[in-house]
């Protein structure tokens, strides 16, 4: 209503930025320890591999000599967008991390995903994007699409004490202690939020071709090449009313020649089972080649617990929270691999 008044308060974002910039420059100039800025010059002939990546986000810590890790700023500051990003040749990798959905957004999602009761924490505005600008191709990992892949039907999985529970309720119903409550399950959806999500192809006509004989080049990936860009985020998480955990986590690391993304669905239903569904996306920048490997692991809860016998005997359940350890114990149920060559 009174626009003048509302505009009078607060400081413009750009002013803050400028002030910050000026302040930073002043501090830098006065710092006795400061070294003279390196003079730009043509690289020597046998200089180490030139830095060819571009840091796209000015909010992030300066990529000092481009061996520094570019990591998202400590906290997103509104209304500034904090979308850390890095470009190498034709490839651009962008991430965004935001708080969980608010109730208005939740209502909208509820309508879109009808029939599914939402998981407890949805980081619905977070994503990881791998783009190839030249071929207009984009692969994105986000919570909405991951949840769309959750089945809105009975998963058949029940918590460990479900049988006992239902029986005791039936007994009570007979003795008419529980007159009006129904023992029907109200809504049928996969409450474990099991998702076979492999990312969403947002744009581009290029598609993956299946080739299960291809494997990820582990030798190249286990080299300690400097990580230029790293991010790690959760897309959604639910603690299954304290019967375990269901979580989709996406990690990405970008090196000078390649990038690896791991999107992991991790499920633990206490006393019942474990599932780890991994999607790995591997990008070889120079070859313009993308590999996508999808693996399903699953096993009985007791089987995994027995793998841990002997060690950690004082707190045997602590290790069951570590998805890496669990993934190593679980047998592989299914593996698929796809290749995309531009």
């Amino acid at each position: 209503m009174d626009s003048k008044r509302t505009r009078g308060h607060g400081i413009n974002t750009i002013q803050i930025n400028q002030a910050r910039e000026i302040h930073a420059q002043t501090v830098r100039a006065r710092d006795p320890r400061a070294q003279p800025r390196p003079v730009l010059h043509a690289p020597a002939i046998n200089a180490p591999a030139p830095n060819r990546h571009i840091c796209n986000n000015p909010n992030n810590p300066a990529c000092a000599h481009c061996s520094a890790v570019i990591i998202p700023a400590p906290k997103a500051t509104l209304p500034l967008e904090d979308t850390p990003s890095i470009s190498i040749e034709d490839w651009t990798i962008t991430t965004r991390k935001k708080p969980i959905l608010n109730s208005k957004e939740l209502d909208e999602w509820d309508r879109t995903l009808g029939g599914l009761t939402m998981p407890e924490m949805i980081f619905g505005n977070s994503f990881v994007k791998i783009e190839n600008k030249k071929h207009d191709w984009c692969l994105e990992f986000n919570a909405l699409d991951a949840l769309k892949a959750v089945k809105v039907e009975d998963s058949g999985i029940r918590v460990s004490y479900a049988n006992k529970w239902i029986k005791s309720k039936q007994a009570q119903q007979k003795s008419s202690e529980l007159a009006e409550s129904s023992l029907q399950i109200g809504q049928h959806y996969d409450w474990t939020y099991t998702t076979k999500y492999k990312g969403t192809i947002k744009s581009g006509t290029h598609n993956f071709t299946q080739d299960n004989s291809t494997a990820l080049p582990l030798d190249k990936l286990s080299r300690p090449d400097p990580i230029l860009f790293y991010d790690d985020m959760i897309l959604f998480e639910d603690e299954l009313a304290d019967n375990g955990i269901s979580v989709v986590n996406v990690k990405i690391r970008v090196m000078n020649e390649r990038a690896l993304l791991l999107s992991r669905f991790f499920l633990r239903v206490d006393g019942v089972l474990f599932r780890v569904y991994d999607t790995r996306v591997y990008v070889e920048f120079d070859e313009n080649r993308v590999l996508r490997e999808y693996k399903e692991h699953e096993a009985d809860y007791k089987y995994v617990l027995s793998k841990n016998s002997g060690r950690h005997s004082r707190d045997p359940k602590a290790i069951l929270r570590d998805s890496n350890w669990v993934a190593q114990q679980l047998p592989l149920v299914k593996r698929e691999c796809e290749v995309l060559q531009f």
Partner: peptide
């Protein structure tokens, strides 16, 4: 699914 009464969760308890 639109019962205003008590419902069993799909978890089975």
């Amino acid at each position: 699914s639109s019962s205003p009464h008590f419902q069993v969760s799909p978890r089975g308890a």
